[in-house]
């Protein structure tokens, strides 16, 4: 059965689809968090060098990956909105920004908590840390710029430009540990293999999936409110059961 995906690029159809998907993503995320944290804390052994402190990675690594990936997704939607003038793309970019900012903050916060016992400092002006901080500021800048312009279409265009220009920071974050001599360690998991214990890998990948599903659920819930707000003068909104009740 062929699915017409373009049908779901219209707010009219996407609103209903998002409403049906949110509980599935939220429930799966909660289950995966429980399983991932159980493996991470009860099954995975302590690290021979870092002891118990390494267990911060089960939230630090997923948050860092998501903060970068969500930015690229946000910039992609912003670019689509700018080029094709599609309503839903700009709404999606606006909905992703707060969640991306929160993941960037959690990444920096948990990194600081790991840095204190391991490096002896909460913060160092290392290339990886500094570029991640810039990412947080880019998210905040996007949110502030969008909120500062009253006309939503003009706000979409202005903030889309910021998102697209700012996306250059994502490869800088990712490759910073290779390009510069940083205190932050490089990737432990590579295509060529890893020295990590299997249980540590399982816990990290499961919590990464949990964070992904959480982000999708929250972004879908937020975009539904944005659709309601922006399309409030249309007939289809006034005919929605939740509006009529």
């Amino acid at each position: 059965m062929a699915i017409n995906w373009f049908k779901y690029s219209a707010p009219t159809t996407f609103y209903g689809l998002a409403g049906k998907l949110i509980p599935w993503f939220a429930f799966s995320s909660a289950i995966l968090f429980v399983v991932g944290l159980y493996i991470g804390f009860a099954v995975a052994p302590a690290d021979y060098q870092q002891g118990e402190f390494y267990r911060i990675i089960f939230i630090h690594v997923p948050s860092s990956i998501l903060s970068m990936f969500l930015y690229l997704v946000m910039a992609g939607y912003a670019a689509l909105g700018l080029i094709f003038n599609t309503r839903l793309s700009a709404m999606m970019a606006t909905a992703i920004a707060p969640t991306g900012a929160l993941f960037a903050f959690i990444s920096l916060w948990t990194g600081a908590l790991w840095g204190k016992p391991m490096w002896g400092a909460w913060w160092v002006w290392d290339a990886r840390l500094t570029s991640e901080l810039i990412l947080l500021f880019l998210y905040l800048g996007f949110i502030a710029l969008h909120a500062s312009i009253d006309d939503p279409r003009r706000a979409d265009r202005a903030s889309a430009l910021l998102a697209i220009v700012g996306s250059v920071n994502v490869p800088i974050i990712y490759f910073s540990v290779q390009w510069w001599n940083t205190l932050h360690q490089g990737s432990t998991i590579k295509f060529s293999g890893t020295s990590m214990h299997v249980a540590m890998q399982q816990a990290m990948f499961i919590t990464l999936a949990a964070c992904w599903l959480y982000a999708i659920a929250v972004v879908l819930a937020r975009v539904r409110s944005i659709i309601l707000e922006r399309e409030r003068n249309t007939t289809w909104i006034t005919e929605l059961p939740e509006v009529r009740s």
Binding site: F41, I56, W109, T110, L113
Partner: peptide, 27 residues
């Protein structure tokens, strides 16, 4: 170390998630 990891990172992260969910529902 475990209390430090739990309270410092996981409790804070889940608190942030809870705040975000509450804000989305309120909106």
């Amino acid at each position: 170390p475990l209390a430090y990891v739990w309270l410092g990172s996981y409790a804070v992260a889940f608190f942030i998630f809870t705040i975000e969910i509450a804000m989305v529902r309120h909106k």
